[in-house]
Amino acid sequence: MTPGAGRLSLALLLTPFLLWIVLLVLLPHAEMLRVSFQVRESWDTLDWGLTQYRNFFEEAYYWRTFLRTGLMSLFTTALTLLVAFPIAWYIARLARGRSRGVLFLACLVPFWASELVRTYGWMILLRESGVFSALLQGVGLADGPVEMLYNDAAVIIGLVYNGLLFMVVPLVTTLDGLDENLVEAGYDLGGGHLTVLREVVVPWAMPGIVSGSIVVFMLTLGSYLTPILMGGKDSAWFTQQIFTQFITRFNWEQGAALGVLLLVLSSLMVWLGLKLTGQSLRKVMG
């Protein structure tokens, strides 16, 4: 192949990827960044300024929701990790042959339905006239219907459920590669269950833990349906405010500023997470 032909085929192969990156990632973000610094003087005059960002910091409702979303996403991620770890351990280390495939499939099945359907599933269980409420009344633990929806706990349950698969998969992959002898050596040299978990298993699984956590954190931070449907009027999620600005208020400038802030927050948290755990993005995603 001549160098010219080689370069041409490289360019052709890269074209879809470059189109995707430029048109769907770089361009919209650049545009959003530009819009976020524009201040609408009147209906036909625009000026550069920081008004939108000032609004965010001056209006308590904005930054409180922002902070709450960040903290609840962190909490959800941690909880997802706690729930996913035993599941992944069982699938990777204890299950054999067929049951392994079946268990993996069981984690995957809910994702054949859309997020909307999954969320409605939880609503059927948790609502006042729902399954759990009826069960509690039937057993005699409750006198009347119990409303379990429209609070933060319900939102977190829904979010953990949505993120579970994305935590289980990388954990199973890393735990799968853990040599049984390493675990046995951990016990043999005098370690108890907790020591072996802390000193041997978790350090080994760290790349999986970090990559799972990054994905779940980003998904949670950017989720929209679950907090809206399952949360109460006090459980506002930051994505809702971005939606409101863009669609309801038609205030693209403010919406863009909030969007940029959310992007900065998630990038910052991922960077911080990598720094704290001593992992590099290449190792975690490679």
């Binding site: 002898n181 390493l182 046995e184 043999d188 040299l189 000193e199 080994w204």
Partner: peptide, 21 residues
């Protein structure tokens, strides 16, 4: 007696050195 409470240590076939340490 559990393995971690025995006065016995083992050198494994593939050594099982902790790769993270």
């Amino acid at each position: 007696v559990a393995p971690n409470r025995r006065p016995v240590n083992m050198v494994f076939q593939h050594l099982a050195l902790f790769p993270t340490m």
